[in-house]
Amino acid sequence: MYDREARFRMEDTMNAARLEYTEKGVMNLAARRCDIIRISQSSAVLALLTQYSLPREFYLDIPDARITKIGCILMKVFANNTVEVRFLRLVTKKELDKIFVYSTHPAHRDRVLDVRA
């Protein structure tokens, strides 16, 4: 399914995020902090703070941009505590703009929100 989708260009960013997933079936909901270092409309690269086992499916929350519950599938795990994930839905252009406004990356320093939109 994912190999037939159009690829979107990844853009560097630096946003705080939170991963939410269930441990041991449906008994325990766990939340872990991470950083988004690259993002596109269909995927992202996340930097994990510590080494822990991540399930195949989880939710991604971006509290600064007020974006909640983006469903994710784990695609690749890299050795330097980063993972590549694919989103279960495309992130809209408006949501991407909100993410870039709240980014601490130097490339997004002059981004502002359009309050009329």
Rank of each mutant, 00 (worst) to 15 (best):
Tyr2Cys: 13
Arg4His: 13
Arg4Asp: 15
Ala6Arg: 11
Ala6His: 11
Arg7Glu: 12
Phe8Tyr: 10
Thr13Met: 03
Asn15Ala: 03
Ala17Ser: 09
Ala17Trp: 02
Ala17Thr: 05
Arg18Leu: 11
Arg18Ala: 10
Glu20Lys: 00
Lys24Ala: 09
Gly25Trp: 03
Val26Leu: 10
Val26Ala: 11
Val26Trp: 08
Met27Gln: 15
Met27Ser: 15
Asn28Val: 12
Leu29Pro: 04
Ala30Gln: 14
Ala31Gln: 13
Ala31Pro: 15
Ala31Tyr: 09
Arg32Thr: 02
Arg33Leu: 07
Arg33Ala: 11
Cys34Phe: 05
Asp35Asn: 12
Asp35Ala: 12
Ile36Met: 05
Ile37Thr: 10
Ile37Lys: 03
Ile39Lys: 04
Ser40Ile: 02
Ser40Glu: 07
Ser40Gly: 03
Ser40Ala: 02
Ala44Met: 02
Ala44Leu: 01
Ala44His: 02
Leu46Phe: 04
Ala47Tyr: 11
Ala47Trp: 08
Leu49Ser: 13
Thr50Leu: 12
Thr50Cys: 14
Thr50Val: 15
Tyr52Ala: 03
Tyr52Val: 06
Tyr52Trp: 10
Ser53Glu: 07
Ser53Phe: 10
Pro55His: 02
Glu57Pro: 15
Glu57Ser: 07
Phe58Glu: 00
Leu60Trp: 04
Leu60Gln: 00
Arg66Glu: 09
Ile67Trp: 01
Ile70Asn: 01
Ile73Asn: 09
Leu74Pro: 15
Leu74Asp: 14
Met75Lys: 06
Met75Phe: 07
Lys76Ile: 10
Val77Lys: 01
Phe78Arg: 06
Ala79Asp: 15
Ala79Met: 03
Asn80Trp: 14
Asn81Ile: 08
Thr82Asp: 05
Val83Lys: 01
Val85Glu: 02
Arg86Trp: 02
Leu88Pro: 13
Arg89Phe: 03
Arg89Lys: 08
Val91Gln: 00
Thr92Trp: 03
Lys93His: 14
Lys93Val: 06
Lys93Ala: 11
Glu95Met: 02
Glu95Thr: 02
Lys98His: 06
Phe100Val: 01
His105Leu: 00
Pro106Ser: 05
Ala107Pro: 09
His108Thr: 04
Asp114Ile: 09
Ala117Tyr: 12
